[in-house]
């Protein structure tokens, strides 16, 4: 169909405007993080400082506790992502491939967990974990985050498995494979993109989690990035340059995973939105 050129221009303009709106806050973060301290206030509202420096990054990496927060966050998010993906892959496979009596109830239970406010669990969770020695511990966070992310990840994996024809594993079983071998050699390689997407979703979710980390972690030893950054905000409330440098550093892993899963976003969220 031929399009009206005025409409085309308006369309591009609208897209451009939205991209500017989407990127500006991130751009500002970057801008302040590279502005030297002495220019921070005098050039506070300039679009780009007259001089740039990486002094904030250097300070954050060398002299602050951020490398530890970063490492803690990485351990927590990485472990959570791996465990959730394993658990969700197996459960999603069962929901996709077996017709069994409890399937309806399992699905209902998982949907329910998506509906109730997680903030409800903050107090009881603290009470349960504290005698187990799991407060102030990365393990405790991993356990909590894993459980929180399993339902959505299971729906996601289920939709990826649903996309792989049953014929393939039946053919493999006739070719002489057990169900498990068929899963490992035929289904799993074909689900790799889905597994990558699930890993990415869960990693990003765990990386971003704030409230439970605030509640369950006190002190810097086991602080994750959000906890560390927030305590940094209250301690050195004037040092904007360093905070924003730290913020940019916190953004990097999330943005990387976003690039990884970007391709599956539409597909994955549709599955999640329709089912979850």
């Amino acid at each position: 169909m031929r399009r009206n050129p005025v409409l085309t221009v308006l369309h591009r303009l609208a897209i451009g405007l939205y991209i500017a709106f989407a990127l500006f806050p991130l751009y500002w973060l970057l801008k302040v993080s590279v502005t030297p301290n002495d220019l921070l206030y005098s050039e506070g509202v300039r679009m780009w400082p007259s001089r740039t420096s990486f002094e904030h990054y250097a300070f954050v990496i060398a002299n602050s506790e951020f490398p530890r927060f970063f490492l803690n966050s990485f351990i927590v998010s990485g472990s959570t992502a791996v465990i959730v993906t394993l658990v969700a892959a197996v459960a999603g496979y069962a929901l996709s491939r077996f017709a069994f009596r409890g399937k309806y109830w399992i699905t209902a239970l998982m949907l329910l967990t998506q509906m109730f406010p997680l903030v409800m669990l903050i107090a009881p969770m603290f009470k349960i974990l504290s005698p187990l020695g799991l407060t102030n511990s990365l393990t405790g966070l991993i356990v909590v985050y894993t459980a929180f992310n399993v339902p959505f990840a299971t729906f996601l994996m289920q939709s990826f498995f649903d996309g792989i024809p049953r014929d393939l594993e039946e053919a493999a079983m006739i070719d002489g494979a057990t169900r498990f071998v068929a899963f490992r050699q035929i289904i799993l390689p074909l689900t790799l993109p889905g597994i990558a997407a699930t890993l990415g979703f869960v990693f990003t979710a765990a990386w971003s989690e704030l409230l439970f980390a605030l509640m369950l972690i006190s002190g810097n030893a086991a602080a994750t990035f959000p906890v560390g950054l927030l305590s940094f905000v209250s301690k050195f409330s004037v040092d904007f340059g360093q905070m924003m440098a730290a913020g940019i550093l916190a953004l990097i892993p999330a943005a990387l995973f976003f690039l990884l899963i970007q391709r599956y976003l539409v597909q994955g969220l549709t599955a999640g939105a329709v089912k979850g």
């Binding site: 989407a22 990003t204 971003s208 959000p226 950054l229 904007f240 913020g247 976003f258």
Partner: peptide
């Protein structure tokens, strides 16, 4: 991809970033 990017930003960072944008000293 660019339009969807904000969704990848961790929520705590989103909060901080916007608090800074609203800050008269540091934000525009």
């Amino acid at each position: 991809a660019l339009c969807f990017l904000p969704w990848a930003v961790p929520s705590f960072l989103t909060g901080l970033d916007w608090a800074w944008l609203f800050n008269p000293v540091i934000g525009p």
